[in-house]
Simulated assay, not measured.
Amino acid sequence: MKEINHTTRFTVFDTFPELPEDIQSLMNEAIAIRKNAYAPYSKFRVGVALLLDNGKVVLGSNQENAAYPSGLCAERVAVFHAGAVYPEAKIIKMAITAASDSNTTAAPIPPCGACRQSIAEYEFKQDMPIEIYFMGEIGAIYKSDSLKNLLPFMFDKNFL
């Protein structure tokens, strides 16, 4: 028997103004689109802004459904839209923000497991990491240099 240690590294920005200006702009777009979330059941709104290598910004917000599995998270809305409209473009940066209608989210909110797997697919497809910035409504913002920090043992097509 042996043990495997895996270390992940995140950069923490304690306040919004500490972010680089381009990330502030991207996060502001995520904050704006978060307001368009359709979240009548969870009252939890998520907004995402993707910066593509062609300079385009693709936005997404969560879209719920009374049949819960039929809804879609903001990250997948944005990633799948980018893949459909700009199939050759690479996702360079992703900004994620989440807020609850019930209370203030002060902790950084990372992508859920299904979204992590979907983002992993695009990192693998484009053979390039995606910088991921995530925050709550207020407070610190975390930056991951790659989805691999959030999903270290990724499942990809090499296993099939």
Rank of each mutant, 00 (worst) to 15 (best):
Y86W: 15
G83F: 13
A66T: 06
K56Q: 12
P110H: 11
P69W: 12
E64N: 08
Q117F: 08
S118Q: 09
G83V: 10
I91M: 00
Y68H: 09
T105H: 05
L51Y: 00
K93C: 02
N65M: 04
I91Q: 00
V57G: 02
P69Y: 12
A114Q: 07
A114E: 06
G71T: 07
M128F: 12
I96N: 11
N54C: 13
Q117C: 10
D53K: 01
A95T: 02
A107L: 15
E121K: 13
P111F: 09
V77D: 12
G71E: 09
A114F: 12
I119P: 00
T104K: 14
A82W: 01
P87V: 13
A74S: 14
K56Y: 07
A120R: 02
E64T: 07
V79L: 14
R76K: 11
K90I: 04
Y122L: 03
P69F: 13
R116S: 13
P108A: 15
N54K: 03
V58E: 08
L50T: 01
V77Y: 11
A89Y: 14
V57K: 06
A78P: 02
N62T: 08
A84S: 15
L72Y: 06
L59H: 03
G113T: 08
V79M: 13
M128S: 15
F80Q: 12
C115P: 04
M94G: 00
F124K: 00
N62P: 07
I96G: 08
N65G: 03
S70Q: 09
I109Q: 04
N62R: 08
G113S: 12
N54Y: 08
A84G: 06
E88D: 14
S61I: 02
V77P: 06
P87D: 04
A98W: 12
D53G: 02
E64W: 10
V79W: 09
I92E: 13
L52Q: 01
T104F: 14
N62M: 08
H81V: 04
A66W: 09
E123V: 06
G113C: 08
A67P: 00
G83E: 12
L52E: 00
V57Q: 03
N103M: 14
V57C: 04
C115I: 11
K125D: 01
P87H: 09
A89D: 09
I109F: 15
G83Q: 14
Y122C: 02
A120L: 14
A120E: 01
V85L: 14
T104C: 10
N103P: 01
P110G: 12
G55T: 05
K56T: 05
R116Y: 05
G71M: 10
L52A: 04
L59P: 02
N65Q: 06
A107P: 01
D127R: 11
E64D: 04
A78N: 05
A66M: 10
K93Q: 00
A120G: 08
S70K: 13
T104S: 11
K90S: 14
S102G: 10
N65S: 13
P108R: 03
Q126F: 08
K125N: 01
S61D: 05
A98Q: 06
Y122A: 03
N103G: 06
A74V: 07
I91V: 12
A78W: 05
E121P: 00
V58R: 03
R76A: 13
A99P: 05
A98S: 15
S118W: 03
A99L: 11
Q63V: 10
V58P: 03
K56L: 03
T97G: 03
C112A: 10
E123A: 02
E88T: 14
L72E: 15
A89G: 07
D101T: 06
G60F: 12
